[in-house]
Computed example of a mutant assay.
Amino acid sequence: MRYAVSLLYLLVIIGTATLPAPARAGEGSWEYVGGRGGINATGKGALREYEGFVAYLLPWGLGEHGGWRLNTKANGSMGMLQGSGRYGFIATMGPGLSLESPGVPLELDGGVNLAFISQDVYDGRDLNGNLQFVTHIGLNLRVAGPIGVGYRFHHMSNADLNGRQNPGVNMHLFSVIWYFDK
């Protein structure tokens, strides 16, 4: 299964690296692509998540000149959840915001994603449905040229949409990021 995750990361990186850049500034652009993995934050069970991800900068933002900038973006990911010998597919997509300042290699990142999971029971914990919502907040640090690392805390739950139990899962995720030139 480890090779499948590595192959997924490679496909996401190759696929997004071949996409054309926008013709003019302000039309949006690919911001970064990468891989991340992590563990259940509550210590209940051994749930793990591994995924490839991409972020697309949207043309709308605040604070264009000199100071801090609030960016809008579209986020997407595909990967797997693993716990107690069970494996399942996860795919997410949704809007995000990031706060950054020119010349500072640190970015505050947050967002809300709609998620689909192929299995909804891990470690004896029933997530009650294949449709989930993921909210996240994290920090990304550009460390050398186009290479960055990141930390993300995310919460996944069914938002009580099905009227049944809504246990939710909190995760600590760590990222390796490849930034496209801005």
Rank of each mutant, 00 (worst) to 15 (best):
G79E: 08
L70M: 09
I147Y: 10
A4R: 15
A46Y: 08
I13L: 11
I13Y: 11
R142V: 02
W68R: 08
I14Q: 08
I90H: 09
W60V: 12
Q82F: 00
L131V: 14
G76E: 04
G111V: 07
L8S: 10
N113R: 13
V134D: 13
N130W: 01
P105K: 07
R86G: 00
W30F: 08
A4W: 11
P20M: 05
Y122S: 04
R125C: 00
G52V: 06
D109C: 01
S77T: 11
G66Q: 08
V134C: 01
V33P: 02
Q132R: 04
D123E: 14
T42V: 04
A25E: 15
S77I: 08
G76D: 02
T72G: 06
S118E: 06
F133G: 12
A25M: 08
L62M: 07
S101P: 00
A46M: 02
P105W: 09
A91I: 12
F116S: 09
M93E: 11
I137Y: 09
Y56A: 01
G85P: 04
G35V: 03
A55E: 14
N128K: 14
G63N: 02
G43P: 04
S101H: 13
H65I: 07
L19N: 07
S98R: 02
S29T: 14
R125A: 00
R125K: 15
P105S: 10
T16V: 11
A25L: 13
L141Q: 11
T18Y: 03
E49K: 12
D123K: 06
A144R: 14
N40M: 01
R2I: 09
V12D: 06
L58H: 08
G79P: 12
G52R: 02
F89S: 08
S6R: 14
E100R: 15
R48N: 05
V121Y: 02
I147K: 03
R125E: 00
L58I: 09
N140S: 09
L19C: 03
V12E: 13
L47E: 11
L7Q: 11
V134P: 03
G111S: 02
W68Q: 13
R125Q: 04
G88P: 04
G79N: 04
N130S: 12
Y56D: 03
I90D: 09
R125I: 08
A115R: 09
G37W: 05
K44G: 06
G111I: 08
R36C: 00
G15F: 01
A17K: 14
I90S: 07
G88Q: 12
N75R: 14
G67D: 06
R69W: 02
E27D: 15
P95R: 05
H136L: 05
S98Q: 05
Y3H: 13
E100H: 12
R48V: 10
E100D: 08
G67S: 07
G124K: 11
W60K: 10
H136M: 03
G79T: 13
I14K: 09
G67V: 07
A91D: 09
Y9C: 01
Y122N: 09
A17G: 14
V5R: 10
I147N: 00
G26P: 03
F89R: 11
G35F: 01
A74L: 15
G52C: 02
T135D: 13
Y32W: 11
Q119F: 01
P146I: 00
E27V: 12
G138M: 03
